[in-house]
Design a protein around this nucleic acid. Structure first.
Lengths: 184, 184
DNA sequence: GCGATCTCCGAACGTTCGTACTATATTTCG
DNA sequence: CGAAATATAGTACGAACGTTCGGAGATCGC
């Protein structure tokens, strides 16, 4: 995952990975029947880690605004966390890398993204049910805009190294929530 | 540009490009002294095309809201335009590809993005000066959020094939503008 | 008209790629 | 304990990679 986050899932080669692990190429290769399987398992690992670090902790918060805020906060932390993955979010990188290359990787990625969006939208609906957000709040629209904030943060943080990215992300998120908040 | 948009700037190989152009590898190579130069010129070409298609037409509109709206509309059209570049926006793809790989490509990319952001922020400031937006409107914050909408659209459109992406983008943009609009 | 410049080519280079075989240690299990 | 499964290594392959070189044909400027 660390290597793939730097060079991309496509750039992840068995030779360089084996060198990094002090293994022979064939020894490493034996664990995966093919390069595609290595890529697939790497991607699944990243998606699993995302669920564990971002989603699972948010579920411990009360449904409604608290949970959404925790989710967003964890997500931002995940984006900023370059200690864990030196090359930034592997999933985001793979998304632009494979958005037009049909195959198992794209399918896995799209499925994960659809699941993620569904989960965020569900959290938004729960906030509506809890009376925290207006009944007219469009869960998919809010999900779309939250994703946009995350993507912009990733962009500004990693490519431009803008330290204010998180601050802007938080401001955007709060404005977004306030616009749909009951008695806001 | 077409090939690079599909396989990425790093995946753009001289061999495959020469085959696509019905040229010899060495014949094509002679035009660029190195692969990096080919990548650099491809990126510059894309950035130039972006300026020509997205920015230049917007400048024909009156400063203020009309110009910002034109800018956003052109940008969305650029994102959706898969006829021109079959693999989606080359610049966005390169941004995630090179956000952690130092070198001439990253520098060129970052410079272009900084220039882009500056131009968007300037358009926002002109809207404030024209009295279309509140004086407290933070140009950089608005630029950040507009970029987020564009990125989310690209994501949803290309990876998930969501046909409602543009519609959501427009709604997000209008809500963003309305929130900062005078007498809105 | 003729040298200089430009465009393109074919062949070859060393390297890396993904993958296939075979063989040897190590671990697991009945 | 012995057999079966697992983990790793070694070697080899054909292909593609970026790059270099020498040369053929066209084009242009004096």
């Amino acid at each position: 995952m660390a290597l793939a986050s730097q060079v991309g899932l496509e750039g992840l080669s068995i030779g360089s990975l084996s060198r990094r692990l002090d293994m022979s190429k064939s020894g490493l290769f034996a664990h995966f029947g093919s390069k595609e399987d290595l890529q697939l398992q790497t991607l699944r690992q990243a998606q699993g880690l995302f669920a564990e670090r971002v989603f699972a902790p948010a579920l411990k918060h009360a449904p409604g605004l608290p949970r959404i805020e925790a989710l967003f906060s964890n997500w931002l932390a995940w984006i900023e966390n370059s200690a864990n993955l030196p090359g930034g979010c592997l999933i985001l990188a793979a998304a632009t890398e494979y958005d037009d290359r049909p195959g198992a990787l794209r399918d896995e990625l799209a499925a994960g993204q659809r699941e993620l969006r569904g989960a965020v939208a569900k959290a938004v609906r729960l906030a509506v049910d809890a009376g925290h957000l207006h009944a007219q709040a469009d869960a998919w629209q809010l999900t779309f805009e939250i994703l946009g904030i995350v993507l912009a943060t990733h962009h500004d943080r990693r490519l431009l190294g803008d330290p204010r990215a998180s601050e802007r992300a938080l401001a955007a998120f709060q404005r977004l929530i306030a616009a749909h908040q009951v008695s806001g």
